[in-house]
Design a protein around this nucleic acid. Structure first.
Lengths: 191, 191
DNA sequence: AGCACTAATGACTGATTAGTCAATCTTATA
DNA sequence: TATAAGATTGACTAATCAGTCATTAGTGCT
């Protein structure tokens, strides 16, 4: 697959990501995606056999990118609180710097167009989170709540902060990010 | 508007709520909604001039019901922590006992089909939350974070807990609900 | 230049869409 | 029972949909 080809495929995915997020899956026609990407309608179907294949590919790619960004430099931190703080900043940074991706994930993470296969493949990249939480519980730094609950609360808190920053105007971004971490850390920490 | 009429309108709204949630707005045809509701396609358009009017009516009604449930018996509590706890249980109970409504709100609260007018009308019923938060900050029981951030974190935490309970199998429901409150309370409380 | 192969095209199709409307049915009142 | 007003119907339409495929354009090799 040379550069030309990759460009067209990428253009289609970029256009689809933007339009799906703005107008929904069924609200976006393949003709609109092709037009926005600057290719013919037939070209889209060369790369993605169906519209559902297209959104599954998008989901796989975006969620994969997120998992890699999330985990970046975590292990470079020694203290557990610093690991969690690094995770927090990674999540927020990803959301603020990749708004299309952020909104896409929010809208389609529990949508019926994403196949169970795609969902399971993506899930594999997130197991490290459970290990991290177990580490914190074992060392006594966070309280012994259900791992799934802790991960859910942490992740959704980061999404709340990003959404709040994106929708609120002139508030101090960095203060909101720090306050958000204080809230979730105090909520989970033992002391 | 007699009982008969109300029944048809209600049947249409119930069917639409269920189908929109399951298949999305554009993924659900007006013909499907009519069939599910047991009425003719024309009847739907007697009550709702367009498909968008239908989803806006749904949003208005469901969000209105939520705001009334949320605020129920709050003022009967004297301690601030009890008010917040009552709010928490109201939210969780609503989510668990009205799953269609819960999922509908999750999917369409930031969707482009809901008009700004509808959104603003609905927002009016939620101002009491800001007063409540101000009360807690003023009395020194919760920390002085941005009101919008506090409300967002609290609300999304409740959604996380409901989602976690709905998706996780045999875990102890009541423990999860209590743990969830502990997390958000410790996160916000001053001591 | 000539050949072989793949990428790209867009006119086309059968199916489906939101919304209409003339005709029919229901109900309330007298 | 007779009448009028409003509620209900579903066949219908113009527009749009996802996906196809015969044709054309582009590329690399000899």
């Amino acid at each position: 697959m040379d550069q030309q080809v990759k460009d067209k495929k990428t253009a289609i995915m970029d256009a689809a990501l933007k339009l799906f997020t703005e107008r929904g899956f069924h609200g976006t026609s393949t003709a609109q995606i092709s037009k926005e990407a600057g290719v013919a309608t037939g070209t889209l179907f060369n790369y993605f056999p169906t519209k559902e294949d297209l959104i599954n590919s998008l989901y796989f790619e975006v969620k994969g990118k997120l998992s890699r960004r999330m985990g970046k430099d975590i292990q470079a931190q020694s203290a557990f609180q610093d690991k969690l703080k690094k995770l927090w900043y990674n999540l927020i940074e990803w959301g603020l710097n990749n708004q299309d991706d952020f909104l896409f994930v929010g809208q389609f993470c529990s949508s019926p167009y994403i196949s169970n296969y795609t969902r399971e493949e993506v899930m594999k990249e997130y197991v490290f989170l459970h290990d991290l939480v177990e580490e914190g519980i074992a060392s006594g730094e966070i309280r012994d709540y259900s791992g799934g609950l802790i991960i859910g609360m942490f992740y959704e808190s980061s999404r709340t902060v990003v959404n709040f920053i994106l929708s609120s105007g002139p508030e101090d971004k960095n203060k909101v990010i720090e306050d958000g971490f204080r809230i979730i850390w105090r909520g989970l920490a033992k002391n």
